[in-house]
């Protein structure tokens, strides 16, 4: 076990997968000698060379499309999108191609690729370096969508993603790249894509979250335990598609109260699906309205400090929402 940051765990996962399997290669903008703008591929170019760590043209559509064409031809691409905000030029390739290839070829051609993208706000990134884009992609059967919140899970889930025979969207909470630290086992292990993780056990309120918000929800749960003696359970979803319904419902059975937290803007965000699962399959356990805590419905996260803070969900806002729900 070694303590490391979220981004170090991600780098280590890629390093080990590159060493394990020659079919694995990385492409994306500035991933080569620069080691990525966030340094996720730091050191990999020196270790594996220009054949396997490939600086792409500045063109997201083809970062994904080249990955698809290489994946059907038997390679295992890891495609880095520099910021999730810039994934939209590749949207057609993900929607029309990657997610549908296996289905539309009657199971003949599969696309074993990973698309990694740092996402999320609170880093003074303004409208175009702060977006949470997961809800666009969780609408696409055929894709898997994964968002880790701890270094342990980031390494294990990324390895599972590289080995998965399907296209996996791997969104990384960039605010947590260096802020989130944790123990990571040495060497090879995987965390399966699918199951959620109970990040904190509790009986009063279930908090459903992922990525940075799962990290914050855990902090908020400690805050309300200290201040109000509320026992909040935190369910870190980890995999958004396909989602772990059983874990969602099992927690709700205990608490009867649900707070769903995400940093995307509220309307039609991922939390709507969790709320629908609870309304449909958890009705008999329900003790309070199902609540969502998310960003406001504005087109983006503003740059200037106070507006950004106003937009972002943080541990204090989560703690208040837990208290509110516990008192219902």
């Amino acid at each position: 076990m070694a303590e490391m940051t979220l981004i170090q765990a991600i780098t280590q996962a890629m390093d080990e997968e590159l060493a394990r399997d020659k079919r694995v290669f990385i492409t994306g903008e500035d991933v080569g000698p620069r080691g990525g703008v966030f340094r996720a591929t730091m050191g990999l170019f020196d270790k594996y060379g220009a054949d396997r760590i490939v600086d792409s043209p500045l063109a997201e559509l083809s970062i994904v499309a080249i990955g698809i064409g290489a994946a059907v031809a038997g390679l295992r691409p890891i495609c880095e999108i520099q910021f999730a905000d810039f994934i939209h030029p590749a949207f057609n390739q993900i929607v029309s191609e990657a997610s549908k290839m296996y289905y539309r070829s009657n199971g003949q051609w599969n696309v074993p690729m990973v698309i990694r993208a740092p996402y999320g706000g609170g880093i003074s990134g303004g409208l175009y370096h702060s977006q949470s884009v997961e809800a666009f992609f969780t609408h696409l059967p055929g894709l898997k969508v994964v968002i880790p919140s701890t270094p342990h899970d980031a390494k294990g889930l990324l390895k599972s993603a590289v080995r998965d025979p399907n296209p996996v969207m791997f969104f990384e909470p960039k605010k947590g790249y260096r802020a989130i630290k944790g123990d990571v086992p040495e060497g090879d292990y995987t965390v399966p894509i699918g199951p959620a993780r109970i990040a904190r056990v509790g009986t009063d309120v279930s908090v459903y979250a992922y990525g940075m918000m799962a990290h914050y929800a855990t902090i908020a749960a400690e805050m309300v335990a200290q201040s109000d003696g509320i026992a909040a359970e935190v369910v870190d979803l980890r995999t958004l598609l396909p989602v772990d319904k059983e874990a969602i419902l099992n927690s709700f059975k205990k608490t009867g109260k649900a707070l769903i937290v995400y940093e995307d803007n509220l309307t039609m965000g991922y939390g709507a699906e969790v709320a629908a699962i609870l309304a449909n399959e958890g009705f008999e356990y329900m003790d309070a309205p199902v609540r969502r805590l998310a960003g406001p419905d504005v087109p983006g996260v503003p740059f200037s400090h106070d507006m950004q803070e106003f937009f972002m969900v943080n541990p204090h806002k989560i703690a208040d929402a837990i208290r509110d729900l516990a008192a219902y």
Partner: peptide, 10 residues
């Protein structure tokens, strides 16, 4: 670009 990707793989 898929064909380019498969050619890249080759």
């Amino acid at each position: 670009p898929h064909a380019a990707g498969s050619a890249f793989a080759i």
